[in-house]
Computed example of a mutant assay.
Amino acid sequence: MTDCGCDKAKAELEEYIHNELTRGEAEDIAEHMANCESCTGEHLVGLTLTNKVKSACNEKAPVDLRAEVLAKLREIQPTA
């Protein structure tokens, strides 16, 4: 393997985080990050953001709020 460099690692970081690279490309980036504090830091930020977005998508509104919103939607929805 060869060090892919910061430019390539940072450009493909999103794909790396989502496992969208070939095995060889992913190995190159992993090898680079093992020796690059800057890219490792960006990787950590990317992972943190990805995990926060995933967890936010799983949250549900409280039952009372959900009922209130649905009632308002029914109020403003035109009747057929």
Rank of each mutant, 00 (worst) to 15 (best):
Y16F: 11
R74C: 07
M1F: 12
L65F: 13
E75V: 06
L65C: 08
A80V: 14
I76F: 13
Q77I: 06
P78R: 11
I29G: 01
E27D: 13
L49W: 13
R23Q: 06
D64Q: 11
C36N: 04
V45I: 09
K10C: 05
M33S: 00
N51W: 09
R74S: 13
S38I: 04
D7P: 10
E59G: 10
K54V: 03
N19F: 08
E31D: 13
C36D: 04
L73F: 09
S38D: 08
H43Y: 08
L44R: 12
A26W: 02
V63L: 14
Y16V: 02
R66H: 13
S55W: 14
C4S: 05
E75T: 11
L44V: 07
K54D: 09
N58G: 13
E12T: 02
I17M: 03
G46N: 04
E31G: 05
E25F: 05
C36G: 03
A67G: 11
V63W: 11
A11D: 03
A61F: 09
G24M: 10
A34F: 06
V53E: 12
P62V: 03
T40E: 00
G41F: 06
E20Y: 07
A71D: 14
P78V: 05
E15P: 03
K72S: 09
T48E: 13
E68T: 15
D28I: 00
D3Q: 07
G5F: 00
C4I: 02
E42M: 05
L21S: 02
E14W: 06
D64G: 08
E68I: 06
E27M: 08
E42H: 04
P78G: 09
Q77E: 15
M33A: 01
E14S: 12
A26R: 00
E42T: 00
Q77S: 15
A26S: 04
G24I: 07
K60E: 15
D3F: 04
L47P: 03
A67D: 10
C6D: 01
P78F: 07
V69Y: 11
G24D: 09
M33G: 00
L13K: 00
T48G: 15
I17R: 04
V69I: 11
N19P: 06
T48S: 12
L70V: 09
N19R: 14
E12G: 04
E31A: 05
D28Y: 03
L49E: 15
P62H: 08
K54P: 04
A56Q: 13
C57I: 05
